[in-house]
Simulated assay, not measured.
Amino acid sequence: MTAIESNNYYYVYCPKGIESRYELLVLDHEDMPFLPLTDFYHDCKGRISNSSALSYLQTLLPFFKWLNQYSNYQGSRVQWSDPPEAIRVAIEDYLMNEMSCKVKEKDMFRFVNLTQKSPNTVNRFLSSVKSFYKSMINLRQYPFL
């Protein structure tokens, strides 16, 4: 079994000779299967290249670790399946605290401004999280639009 860790969330490839509907399985901070990211990866593979799907997954792994450890919305940890307002707050906090971005609101929109400290992966993160929620909606695992 090949494991590639990214903080506390990581993925493993299915061993050769084992039959499974998943070629890759994401495990959470407790080493338990985490099907939302697993299903996301396999859903992406049907729409984009394997390398892009893997890149999106690798970009999201630290975010899910951060959700577990540091996210806060009205005094509670944010779960990936929470309503959109909690998810938006968590994403903004992650962008500001972990990716050194500035997030400003103007006319009901939020603008992400890169700073000199911002990594060049901000756009990939935003694309990844948008793709994740589109997949979860399409797979009927996230009930909000």
Rank of each mutant, 00 (worst) to 15 (best):
L25M: 15
M32F: 07
S49D: 10
D39K: 11
Y22Q: 10
Y56P: 01
D43Q: 11
P15R: 09
G17N: 07
F34L: 06
Y11F: 14
E19H: 02
P33W: 05
P33H: 09
N7D: 14
L54G: 01
Y11P: 02
Y41G: 05
E19M: 05
R47H: 12
K16T: 12
P36M: 07
Y13V: 03
Y56I: 06
D31E: 14
E23S: 13
S20V: 04
K16M: 12
N8D: 15
S52G: 00
G46K: 14
Y11Q: 07
Y10K: 14
N7E: 15
T38Q: 07
S20G: 07
D31Q: 08
P15L: 13
Y41C: 07
V26D: 03
Y41E: 04
L24F: 01
S49H: 07
P36L: 13
E30Q: 12
K16D: 14
D39P: 00
Y13S: 09
D28V: 02
D28G: 05
K16R: 12
D31K: 09
S55F: 00
T38E: 04
K45P: 03
R47V: 11
Y11R: 09
F40Q: 03
P36F: 07
C44E: 15
C14Y: 00
C44M: 15
N7T: 12
K16S: 15
L27P: 02
D39Y: 09
E30K: 13
E19I: 11
P36T: 10
N50P: 02
L35G: 06
F34Q: 01
G17L: 10
L35V: 09
F40N: 03
